[in-house]
Simulated scan of single mutants.
Amino acid sequence: MNLQRGFPLLNQQYKALFKKNFRLSWRNKQSVLLQLFPSFFFIFLMFCIDKGLNYGDDRGSVDSVDRVTDPETILSPPIPPCEDKLFAKKPCFDFLWTAGSGGVGNQMRIQKIVDGIMKNNPGRKIPPHKVKSFKTKGEENNWFIKNPLSSPGALHFEERNASVISYGIQTSTTQTQLEDNRLNLPEDPTFDFQIPLQIAAEREIARSLVGDPNFIWVVGLKEFAHPSWKLVYQNQITKEDKISSADLGMVPTFFLAIAMFGFVFQIRSKLGFW
């Protein structure tokens, strides 16, 4: 072997040490495995601890909202089936409605508007048995009290004159917020139920006033762009919980130090340091 100098000598020594340690490690496989695998074990343990610490934050106590930089346009969203709600008691109704005060002509006109909402619902016609009507708002409110979670909302129409038909939307979401959402599934009552009802009512009222059942009424909606964030319910987190979380936050760092021992010893044995 020729005598080297400078970097070639350093490279030659590294190669010789590597070959020597590789042969020694190959002869003593059990010792090498004991040095290598504890690092992977502790890293996996760190991962489990981190997931355990964030388990509560990802569920009931914290609402996680993803970042939205370029919201997609939603065109005329349809009225969804009532079964799509997180909490729905069957049999349920897609929506309820009242016609307000007025004569027979008023009732018939509002009935045609409701029929148009059911018939022209994008992507899905609403069957008659999924819609329920009431004479007054009081009757409808009493029905909501006796049948919670049986309908996502109601439409209240009022024909003021031949050219003005007003309406109001009543959503049933209070009971849903009080339920224990064990799966922490996302639900947006405004986008999922209220806005589709609003667009459908405005579309059919406009067609009724114009007198054209094919009058084009297309509405596009976009969510506001926003960064990701977490909303913490302060009344659900006590001082003791915060201290405990801070103390447990040191555990991953501690296990990282443990995992580094095997890695350092292995590098030392391979390169012949110390």
Results as ranks from 00 to 15, higher is better:
Asp180Asn: 12
Asn106Val: 12
Cys48Trp: 04
Leu53Ala: 10
Ser269Met: 02
Phe255Ala: 02
Gln30Pro: 04
Phe273His: 06
Phe254Val: 14
Ser64His: 14
Lys270Cys: 01
Ser208His: 08
Lys132Thr: 05
Pro227Val: 04
Glu159Ser: 13
Asn21Tyr: 12
Phe41Thr: 07
Lys90Tyr: 00
Gln266Trp: 15
Glu159Thr: 11
Ile237Pro: 01
Gln236Ala: 06
Arg67Val: 08
Tyr55Cys: 00
Phe224His: 14
Cys82Lys: 02
Lys90His: 00
Cys92Val: 01
Ile199Tyr: 05
Lys19His: 02
Pro213Gly: 06
Gly272Cys: 01
Arg203Phe: 03
Tyr14Asn: 07
Ser208Asp: 11
Arg182Glu: 05
Leu183Val: 14
Asp212Gly: 04
Phe87Gly: 05
Thr171Ile: 15
Ser61Gly: 01
Glu140Phe: 08
Ser163Glu: 11
Gly211Ser: 02
Ser228Thr: 07
Lys135Trp: 13
Val62Ala: 11
Phe224Asp: 15
Val32Met: 09
Gly220Tyr: 01
Ser25Glu: 13
Met46Ala: 06
Thr174Ala: 05
Thr174Leu: 12
Asp192Gln: 11
Ile79Pro: 09
Pro186Leu: 08
Glu140Gly: 10
Ile267Ser: 05
Glu223Gly: 09
Gln111Ala: 07
Ile243Glu: 06
Ala259Pro: 02
Lys90Arg: 00
Trp97Tyr: 14
Ala16Leu: 03
Asn106Cys: 13
Asp247Asn: 14
Ser133Tyr: 00
Gln111Phe: 03
Ser166Asp: 10
Pro80Trp: 14
Gln4His: 11
Ala200Ser: 08
Phe191Arg: 10
Asn21Asp: 00
Phe44Leu: 06
Phe93Arg: 08
Phe261Arg: 04
Val219His: 11
Pro38Cys: 12
Arg203Met: 06
Ile43Ser: 08
Val210Leu: 04
Pro252Ser: 12
Ile243Pro: 03
Gln111Asn: 02
Asp247Gln: 15
Arg59Ile: 01
Pro38Leu: 14
Val65Ala: 03
Phe37Gly: 04
Phe44Val: 02
Phe87Cys: 09
Asn141Ile: 03
Ile113Ser: 05
Phe41Lys: 03
Pro80Ser: 10
Ile49Pro: 00
Tyr55Arg: 05
Gly220Asp: 12
Asp188Ile: 00
Ile205His: 10
Arg124Glu: 05
Leu45Ala: 15
Leu33Cys: 08
Pro196Cys: 05
Asn142Ala: 14
Leu178Cys: 02
Lys112Trp: 12
Thr173Asn: 09
Asp58Thr: 09
Asn181Lys: 03
Asp212Arg: 08
Thr253Met: 12
Asp241Met: 13
Arg59Lys: 14
Lys112Gln: 11
Thr173Arg: 12
Arg124Pro: 07
Leu10Ile: 05
Met250Phe: 15
His226Asn: 13
Leu34Gln: 01
Ser25Leu: 13
Ala88Trp: 15
Trp97Glu: 00
Val164Lys: 01
Phe7Cys: 01
Glu72Cys: 10
Ile126Tyr: 09
Ile113Cys: 09
Asn141Ala: 14
